[in-house]
Design a protein around this nucleic acid. Sequence first.
DNA 1: GTCTATATTATGATAGAC
DNA 2: GTCTATCATAATATAGAC
Lengths: 226, 226
Amino acid sequence: MATDLTKETLDEVVNQRRRQQRSLDTRERILQAAFEEFAERGFEGASTRTVAAKAGVQHPLVTYHFKNKEGLWRAVVSTTSFNFGQHFQVQLADISEKDEVARLRLLQEQFIRFAAANPNFHWLMSHEGKRESDRLTWLVEERVKTYFDVVAKLIREAQKRGRYVEGDPYHLQYLFIGAVTRIFMLNAEVQQVMGRSPFSKKFVDEHVKTCCALFFREPPEKPRRR
Amino acid sequence: MATDLTKETLDEVVNQRRRQQRSLDTRERILQAAFEEFAERGFEGASTRTVAAKAGVQHPLVTYHFKNKEGLWRAVVSTTSFNFGQHFQVQLADISEKDEVARLRLLQEQFIRFAAANPNFHWLMSHEGKRESDRLTWLVEERVKTYFDVVAKLIREAQKRGRYVEGDPYHLQYLFIGAVTRIFMLNAEVQQVMGRSPFSKKFVDEHVKTCCALFFREPPEKPRRR
DNA sequence: GTCTATATTATGATAGAC
DNA sequence: GTCTATCATAATATAGAC
């Protein structure tokens, strides 16, 4: 079949592929710009025209690719949530299923490093948690609960072994997430109050240590060796 | 002089007072509505027309009483910051200047109870900490720094006595504030994830205990009595 | 797939009557 | 002090040309 293609139809195919590629690029650039815009201003505060301008495309293209503002928001949440999940999978695979404390510690450390690298992700989520909405219900059912449940299970195991602070695991997760993320989310204020950026490697390493030290406990005293 | 007043002028005085009172009421209602609106949507997301509608007044009255949107925002921050400060003064006066650990503990507990009662206050502040602006600079210089400095001093004293976790006091304050406030700020999400409200008296009491337990340390072992 | 043009609605701000 | 009327601007969304 391919050998039957005339010069004209070959050109058409090439053109079509170029167009498809450009379309994908456009979609990707809108998505990236929308992520920043939604994180910065929340769903209602965000402007799809500003998104288009940031992405360097005409504003009707937003509607073309994502139907409407809500479709754009859902696409942003889906891709960023996927990235969030991916961030843990790789390293977590190296650790034995049975060592729950080690898994939890790695998970929490990775969470902190993800928060440092993606403060916008936490703004995106936080904006929706303020008040009830269809978007919040969707977010909780599809994304938040699954993550919370996984971590809660690990926290319970760690608590059994005396390696994590006491308390309701869901409650403790809100404390942990708040303690970890706020300093990155309020980075402009932090810069003015502390005179340094919370994003430097040195600071992030300190932050990992300090946050983990707050929630993890040293192993209970073993009978003395020797 | 007062005895010279005719019936007409008396009526005028009464009317004027009524008008002044009504004006103050209007101002107050706009202020309250604006607090909710700014907390919910941030400065740029907030609409002065929505504020007027919530307050039940015509929208030009916003301009009359506060000049413009920024003037309204400043008035909101000033009054709510004043309330925040007032919240500590009363009980703090009862504690000796010298017992820094007790002062710090009371301050932190009062902070938690204030956060539970006024989640909007923390939203109002958080919106501005995201990115640089004249409003942020004003906020940090006029309100944030003074509070942070007072608490940092107490934290250093408590650390000297081994009664507070180690680390930079400003850094630790961001951890503490984040841990404390997030669960109240995301109350709609919390309700869906945990199936209960973070605002119940029982929950707030638990929260006070859990948060303080994370940051305060028990006194170092004294030589055993008896 | 992309872009011009436009319908509709909402915003911040102000002028002027009462 | 309050309210009606209005201006200039910017928003979401869509129709239709290319």
